[in-house]
């Protein structure tokens, strides 16, 4: 949009120290959230905005303690409502860089409605979705992303619910930015966070996070040292989708589906491998990438989609600007004296 609501940039370079909070971090030792916190503290100074222009919002759950641990303006909301509260913040002051820390329960169960609508509206803010496939703070009940059949405290015989695939949900809600990272790869996480900050519109970064207490190892099939090279496809814009320990596997389009192929086998060359275009307006391939999962496919990591569309907050400002330029009503006195009135002298 032509409005270009930029966030004011800092004149002095900032460091990680500028964002350190005085509060004790109370996540369990070994929790994936520590890595996310460290990544945010790394990325915020790099973004280059003035430190008072960062705003961290959260709902309820382990993830939602996040704002207390970063020295920015912060708001710890109520269960499921972080995205709704954040919308009000961003629409009121588009000159803030707004970040939401939320979880699979917070945004896809109790706050599911706000999650799909903030995405649909494309409000310019960044959602960090900590997906540990479990309710941690309430001590181990299944969540909307828990794999079917999983035994948890509220599913002693295994869950009988089909889990959400976060990426599929985001793209279904017309998401303009979706990325996926794992908590064991801080370098990729920091790169992706930076990309999310750059994106105009709602960015959703799903972080596959390990809950050491209630869902230990749920992401092992993706993050395990022995399997990760073969089960992770780290996407890079403009580059072919190649993965595997020996960099010899690739993703090819066959008919209307994706397939994994071995380069060099059956005379398959690199030329046949799909090249990632994260900026493609059409979400077709992005959706297929988001849905990939072992054992047939690797899991797609990195920025899956980053498409340019007008943002809600920009359009609000444009409408206000146009109304101010054209309306004869410049103040409340003008308004209440407009239309049919009569005077008694």
């Amino acid at each position: 949009m032509e409005e270009n609501l930029t966030v004011e940039r800092t004149r002095v370079p900032l460091t990680k120290e500028d964002f350190v909070s005085d509060q004790m971090v109370k996540w369990c030792p070994g929790c994936g959230a520590h890595a996310i916190l460290s990544s945010v503290a790394n990325v915020f100074p790099k973004i280059g905005y003035k430190k008072e222009n960062f705003m961290l919002m959260s709902g309820i759950g382990c993830s939602s303690r996040f704002p207390y641990y970063v020295n920015t303006y912060g708001f710890h909301g109520i269960h499921g409502r972080a995205n709704a509260i954040a919308t009000g913040i961003k629409v009121t002051n588009p000159h803030l860089s707004v970040w939401v820390a939320t979880g699979d329960g917070d945004s896809m169960a109790i706050g599911g409605n706000h999650f799909i609508h903030i995405i649909r509206r494309n409000v310019d803010l960044n959602i960090m979705l900590f997906n540990n496939q479990i309710y941690g703070l309430t001590k181990g009940q299944y969540s909307p992303t828990t794999v079917m059949g999983t035994i948890t405290k509220t599913s002693p015989q295994g869950t009988i619910e089909h889990p959400f695939n976060t990426g599929e949900l985001v793209l279904g809600a017309q998401g303009t930015f979706f990325a996926r990272v794992v908590d064991t790869n801080p370098k990729l996480m920091t790169e992706v966070m930076f990309e999310a900050a750059k994106h105009d519109g709602t960015s959703v970064v799903e972080i596959l996070e390990n809950c050491v207490i209630f869902a230990e190892g749920v992401h092992n099939a993706i993050t395990g040292k022995d399997v990760r090279d073969d089960n992770q496809l780290i996407l890079k814009n403009g580059e072919p989708m190649i993965f595997g320990k020996n960099k010899d596997k690739g993703i090819r389009l066959k008919g209307t589906r994706l397939e994994v192929v071995q380069i060099g086998v059956n005379s398959i060359t690199e030329d046949e491998i799909l090249v990632h275009d994260q900026y493609d307006q059409d979400p077709g391939i992005h959706l297929m990438l988001a849905k990939m999962a072992p054992p047939l496919y690797p899991v797609a990591l990195g920025v899956i989609r980053s498409a340019m569309f007008p943002t809600y907050d920009d359009m609000v400002e444009v409408q206000i600007k146009n109304a101010k330029a054209t309306s004869p009503v410049k103040c409340v006195d003008d308004l209440i004296n407009s239309g049919d009135t009569w005077e008694i002298k």
């Binding site: 303006y73 710890h76 002051n93």
Partner: peptide, 13 residues
Amino acid sequence: LPGTEGLRHRIGG
């Protein structure tokens, strides 16, 4: 108000 210099703070429920 967020954006004001020197007043960074956190509130919540």
